[in-house]
Structures are given as C-alpha cells and as structure tokens.
Amino acid sequence: MAFEPSLREVLQPKALQPARDVLLSLPEHQRGTLWFVNVLSGLGAWVASLFLMIFLGIFFLGGSNINAIVTGLLITAGAVMLRRANSHGFITQLALSAGLAGQGFFLVGVEGLWGNETATIFAAFVLQFVLLFVYPDTLQRFLSTLFASLSLLYLLRVHAPAVVADVALVALTTIAHVLLLQQGRLQSRDWEARLVTPTLFGLITTLFGVLLLRTWFHGFYQDVFRKGGETPMGVLTLGLAAVTLYSAWRVMEETQAGPGGAAGVTAFAALALTALLTLNTPGVIAALGVLMLGFHRRNAVLLGLAVLFILVFGVSYYYDLKMSLLAKSLALLGSGLLMLGLRLFIARRFPVAGEAP
C-alpha cells in the first residue's frame, strides 16, 4: 500500500493557522456541516413551505383575487426579511420556497383580477426586477434575471415590431458579455459582487432559451406570436456576431495578444466566416461567444453550457441545410478539414511561448 501523508504531516503548524482562523471566523452553523444534513434541512424547509401554502390557499384566499395579491406580496416580503435576517441552510431554503410561492399567489391574483395576459407578464417583470436587487440569494437572483428578461422579451415581441425584440435580445447579450469582461472589477465591490454572477448566468440562460425556442421549436414560436411578423434569422445572427467580435477584441486587448496584428485578424476572420456560414442558426455564433468568454474567465459552467449548445445548434444547422445527405456529409467533411487546417496554421504561425513552432 502506498504511503499517503496527511496535510497535518506535510505542512508546518504555522502554515495551517490562516485556514484555522478563517474557519473559526465563520458562523457556527457553517462549520463542518455534513452535506446530507444540509440536504435534509432544505427538504424539510420546502415541505414546511408547501403545507403552509396549501393551508393559506384553502382557508385565507377564499377565491378573492385581491386577497391573493395581498397575501402573495406579504409572503414575498416576509421571505425577503427572513432571508436577510438569517443565512442558516434551513432558513435559506424556507425563505426561497415561501418567496416563490408568494410570487405565484401574486401573479395568480393579478391574472384573475384583470384577466389580461399582458398585465400579468408586466407584473411579473416588475416584481422580478425588484427582487433582483432586494432578495439576497444567488438562486433567486438568477431566477429573477431569467424571468424578468423573458417577460421583457415577450412584451416587446407582442406589442412592438418583431425587430425590437431581437434588438433587445442582442442588448441583453451585450450586458452579459460586459459583465463577464468586467467581472474582476465589478466583483471587487461588495454590493455588485453579489449581483454579477447570478445576473450574467440568467441573461445567458435567457439567450440560449430564446434561441433554442426559435431554432428547434420554430412552429410553436410562430403559433405563439402569430399576430406579429418575424425578422429574418440572419439579422439576429449579425447582431450577435457583432457582440462576439467586440468581446474578442476586448479579450485580445486584455491578454495583450495584439488584436490589430495577424493573430487578431485571423481570429476575427474565423468568427466572421462562422457567422456568415450559419446565418440561419444564430445560436452557433452566440455559443462561440460564450465559449470564448468562459475560457477567458476559466469558468467551467460557462464552458460546459457553451459546448452543449454548440452541439445543439450545430445539429440544427446540419438539418436546416437544403442539401442532399451526400452533400451534407461532404460539407461536414470539408468544414472539419478546414478547421483542422486553421488549427495547424494558427499553431505554426502563432506558437505559444515555450513551445517549438
């Protein structure tokens, strides 16, 4: 059996002292809590919240929409105050589940009172926008960003020309890219640090969700928005390509890779060519932009999302080609050889420091 020394045997006591000080500075409930204890606490909080909501739904609402709105707002406000007062695992999950139930009560009451889909979605947008700033929880802020973004896009798609919703989607994508590019500076500030990560993940999830709907469920998308027209997919692709090219420029500036040199020209040409070849599948260039920023920020979750959706949108691009199966196969073979050739050219033309060209 191989001898495997412990950290206590490898490190001197003085080297362990900083970690010990940090551990002792944590609240008592965060010290050494076993993972299954946290899971059971969270499960108990959700069950308790479920029974509470059933009780309120049966005995207090009484079919009154005003009661539903007031009760929902009171429960949501109580969840915010409870979460701000205590960060224990049980309290965190209880506040989250109760807050989500309160939001549901509120929206059901709005829908029943006005009977108008637009009023309900606008109310959801306002509520989620407020919770994004006042609710101190990463998951709730992610959900608030996601639901607020989707509500905004829906309202614009229904009540404005179709191109406005596409411009808004490109604008939301730009915000996500800027948050990633400025992540280090923003997270140095305590208040902004709590907003950056859930907001950018909510915006990126919105981007991929909308593009997935328009690409794989295009018939359903047309049925939902049958009253309005639809802009060509190429317009959206070019907008997302412009955002990706801007981010590539900023990444090369930050890494001092010379965006105006041969390396920059090669990268920009490859991105532009990809966008032109996939005009009817905007998800490809959008996923490439997220992949680039995820690699730049060493974010494994973003990398995983980007790779997954590159495959998803790549399959969609393949099936959308108006070609025979033989022509599609040759196109895939040719594009693969082209990418391998481009990889060889970049490796030889721009070798990494310390590697032989």
Rank of each mutant, 00 (worst) to 15 (best):
Q128C: 11
G260E: 06
L291D: 00
E230I: 08
L212G: 11
A269E: 04
L186W: 04
I66C: 00
L302M: 12
D223N: 13
V163D: 07
S25R: 14
N280Q: 13
L82M: 14
F345I: 05
L61N: 00
N116R: 06
F208H: 11
S87I: 09
G112E: 04
F208A: 04
V352R: 07
T76P: 00
W249M: 10
L24F: 13
G184Y: 11
L291M: 06
D223P: 06
A48G: 15
E111T: 13
W191K: 10
G228P: 09
V290K: 09
N67G: 05
F51P: 03
V307H: 02
V167E: 06
L277D: 05
H218Y: 11
R8E: 15
P198K: 07
R20N: 13
W114Y: 14
L321W: 07
E355K: 10
L52F: 14
W46T: 15
L24Y: 15
L26N: 13
G228S: 15
T138Q: 10
R8V: 09
R157K: 12
V163L: 14
L337E: 01
A241G: 10
V163E: 14
L100K: 06
V284Q: 02
L207K: 03
V108C: 08
L43H: 07
A98L: 15
L152C: 10
F125S: 06
Q128M: 08
A248K: 08
D21N: 13
T138A: 13
L52V: 08
Y318H: 10
S41K: 12
A124V: 03
A347D: 07
V315K: 06
S144Y: 01
A267Q: 06
T266A: 15
I58Q: 12
T266L: 14
F345K: 09
Y318Q: 05
Q183G: 07
G283T: 04
P357H: 07
Y318M: 04
A275K: 01
D21V: 12
A270I: 11
V22S: 14
M53A: 15
A327H: 07
V70H: 00
G258L: 08
L305C: 05
F309P: 01
P136K: 08
L96S: 08
R297M: 03
G261H: 11
V243I: 14
I66R: 00
I54K: 02
L236P: 00
L271D: 01
L245P: 01
A119M: 14
M233A: 15
L302Q: 09
G336Q: 08
G314Q: 05
N67P: 02
K328F: 00
N299F: 11
T71R: 06
P198R: 05
L240A: 05
V315N: 10
T92L: 05
L271M: 08
S151K: 07
Q128T: 06
L203V: 04
L302S: 04
F220N: 07
T76V: 11
R297H: 11
I285K: 01
V130C: 07
I204S: 08
L293F: 09
F295T: 12
R298Q: 14
G63R: 00
T237S: 12
A257T: 05
R8I: 09
